[in-house]
Each structure stands twice: as structure tokens, then as C-alpha cells.
Design a binder for these strands. Sequence first.
DNA 1: GGGGAGAGATGCCGC
DNA 2: GCGGCATTTCTCCCC
Lengths: 244, 244
Amino acid sequence: MELDIAAFNEALQKNAIVVIGCSCEIHYSGRAESFLGSGDRLIIIKSDKTLLIHQPAGSAPINYMKDGTSYNLVKEEGKLVLHCSNIAVKEYMDVFISKVHSFQQLQMEDPAKIQLVGSERDMSDMVYDNPNLIEPGFRPLSREEHTKYGFIDVFGYDKNNILVVIECKRYTADLKAVDQLQRYVTKIKQLRGLDRVRGIIAAPEISPNTLQMLKDNGFEYRKIAPPKYLERFSRDQKSLGDYM
Amino acid sequence: MELDIAAFNEALQKNAIVVIGCSCEIHYSGRAESFLGSGDRLIIIKSDKTLLIHQPAGSAPINYMKDGTSYNLVKEEGKLVLHCSNIAVKEYMDVFISKVHSFQQLQMEDPAKIQLVGSERDMSDMVYDNPNLIEPGFRPLSREEHTKYGFIDVFGYDKNNILVVIECKRYTADLKAVDQLQRYVTKIKQLRGLDRVRGIIAAPEISPNTLQMLKDNGFEYRKIAPPKYLERFSRDQKSLGDYM
DNA sequence: GGGGAGAGATGCCGC
DNA sequence: GCGGCATTTCTCCCC
């Protein structure tokens, strides 16, 4: 099929969503440089002028451009080329289109914002509100304590009035989580001139290496899972239940 | 427009790419739980049964399912519902479709794999091959040295035969980069019973806080940028040059 | 499949 | 804008 350049330009001008199925080669230059040989792909340009190019499989786009990109679709030596440029971030892309399989434009409106439960923030809220999840006598002082060396999830005193820094992870805690905890504890000791500050990782799981490093550094592990139920849906919606 | 359930099922059966423009609500349950109220979106199902749902703006999909997901499109109380389930990872999604704007299926073939230059690996290769970028007399021993506590980018001796651990970052080095370096240096000291091991961060930029922490930990910074030119293209392709 | 780490990460929030 | 950090991160590589 033919791709009507005028129709393409008009769609972009109206901030419509443009979807093109085609065979193409891609050259990108910006933060890095890449080349992708010929194959069938789905090209999407959104209303904010974000570009996504997807291969037939995989979750992440194989090439993309940030919002605010400018597009110039031209015919060069009988072949379609989509020139993309984002001056603001100095990124450029050329899409050499050898065959167009489909072209489509959609006018879309979407004011909705996603509600999400089960994040690390939800987890630190839970720990703050239920300090016994850590241990009897734990008294949280603050959430998201800002230090120059990072934000601390939960911060408080234990029953012996020793400062405790807690790092929450919603997934399996890894070496990086210990890195973070070590950085916070070191900084708190410096800032307050303390000899002893406890460090605790709260997570549903922890890898063996990570647990070893945690112990080597004199820290502790608490097995705690993030809350993740939108109560409204467990009551009102039955559909998901059919699958579980 | 109407969405033909039989056509949808047939497309999936053929491993075609399915693209649906519609207005919908979305409920997801799995690693976390989310709800997204009504709005216009683009739904994409790929040949590997990855699901992507995109709002009209933004780079990342607002909801998605991993490859290998099963789909069941049904009419419930006169409304279309797309039930999605991935038993393997215990993830589920329901898409309540109130209006279908477009439906499209594409048979796609794409054997190509991307070539990318400018990664951190390219940078550590460059440092390994040009040790003077670090300092006179630096002698690299290995790349990607595996320790139980992580992989070291470049590892070698300085002119005084002191061990040096180098962590390369292709972007502005941040606190996490120092964390990583600290972990490697600490572990190397332990493993080899050494008193002194130097740590160096090689990156094009470093944030002030990070530089401070780096110095506090007794480490050093080298300003080095990653290589990023596909020589073939800077010679053969003229198109990108038109924009730069 | 899990562990470890990069990514052209993206997105969010704070200053 | 930069900084710091979580992410339903995703992807790759290696054990």
C-alpha cells in the first residue's frame, strides 16, 4: 500500500496517534548510536510526538524517540524515509521504509491516571503504621528522611533507644539494597556522631549472597511483603477472580 | 465499530500482531495491583503474546503483560471484556472495552537484531585497550572480573603495583556508582588480604554530591566519555548529517 | 531459573 | 533544570 505523505502530516498536525505497519531499516544517533537491519515493525507516533518502534516480539520498543520530536516524511530516490529529530536532547533517527503494510490515525482522549497499590512506598507506609512488623518496641520517627546522601525509607528508635534505619524493598532484596543501607547508616553515624546505628532490610525475599553481605556488614533482615489489594476491586469486581 | 471476536481469535492463532484502538477501563493484578479509569488507548498484542496498552502520550506502556499471556475476549452483559492471564508469573488483567475505534492485524517477520555502540561495555573495552586514559603506568589485568559480590568492569595495577578497581559509567556518575565501587574494593581487600586498593570512577560527568562521597571514601574520578560511532554509518549514510 | 548489572532505561518527586 | 530513586522496570549474560 501507499503511504500518503499529506495524510501523515495532517495527522501529526492534529495530534492524532499514528500507527504504521511497515518493513524498514533504522539508524539512530544520540545518547548512543544504533542500526537495525530490515524487518517488519510497528511504528507509533503519539500525540506528544513520542515515537515508538516495535518488533513483532518483546516488551520494550527496539527504537524510540522522546516526546517533542519533529518528523519529516519524504520520498528519497523513490523510497520513503522518516527523518526524526529532537534538537532539545540532540537525538536523531532515520527510518528507511521499504514497504508500507498499514497506516492508521486515531484521535484519542485519555484524562485517566493510574492507581497503583503494592509499591515500595505502600510498604514503608505499612511499616510506619505497624512498627511491630519490625520488632516490639520499635518507634518510627519519620518516612522519607532526606539526607544529602539519599532518602531513608523509615527511620526510628528501637526499645534500647538505638537509631534504626530501614530500607524497604517490594521484591527480592539484592546487593544494591545493602549498598544503599550501608550508605545511609554510614552517613547517619557521621552526621550525628554516633558509634552504633542499626540497619534493617525489610523485603519479602532476599538472595543468599545478599543475606551474607548484610550479615557481614552487621545488618539485619525482616521478611515482610508489600500490601497490594485495591479493596474496591476485591469486593466489586468478580472477573479477575475467575482466573485465580 | 464492532470488534469481531472470531477474527480476533484467528489473528492470535496465526501469531499476527493485533492492534486495537478503543476506549476502556483496565484492572491489573500480579506483582502489584492497579486500576485505570476510562480513556482512549492503543492495545497491542504481539506474536509472542506480549500485551502493551498505551495512552495517547508518554513513552512507557501504562499497562502490560509479559510474553506467553493467554487471551479471552468475551461479551459480558453486552460489553466487550478482554481477559488476560499469565499463569506462569501469576499475573492477570481485565480490559473493559466500552467502544472500539479500530481493529487491525498484521503478519510480521523480523529476523534483524540491533547493533548498538556507546554502551558501558564499549567504554570499559576502550579503557582496557587505552590504559593511559586512566593514568600513565596503569596496567589492566582483566575485564568483567567476577567476584561473589559483583562484576568488576576493569581491574589492574598502577605504576606502584597497587591494585586498582575501575567502575565505568556511560552517563553522569551517581551515588549508586560509588556504592558499587565501595562494595568491590571492600571485597577485593578482604579476599586478597590487602590494606590498600584504589578505586576509580570513569565517567563523562559526576554530580557534586557523588564527587564528595567519592572523595570521602578515598576514591578518584576520571573524566572519560564512551565511544559512540558506528564508523560504517558516519561514512556511508548522509541522512542523519542533514540534521546535525 | 536465579543472580547480578546495564539501559539510548522511563517516570516521579523534590529542590 | 538536575538529583536521587523506584519500576508490574526490561533485557542481557552467566552460573
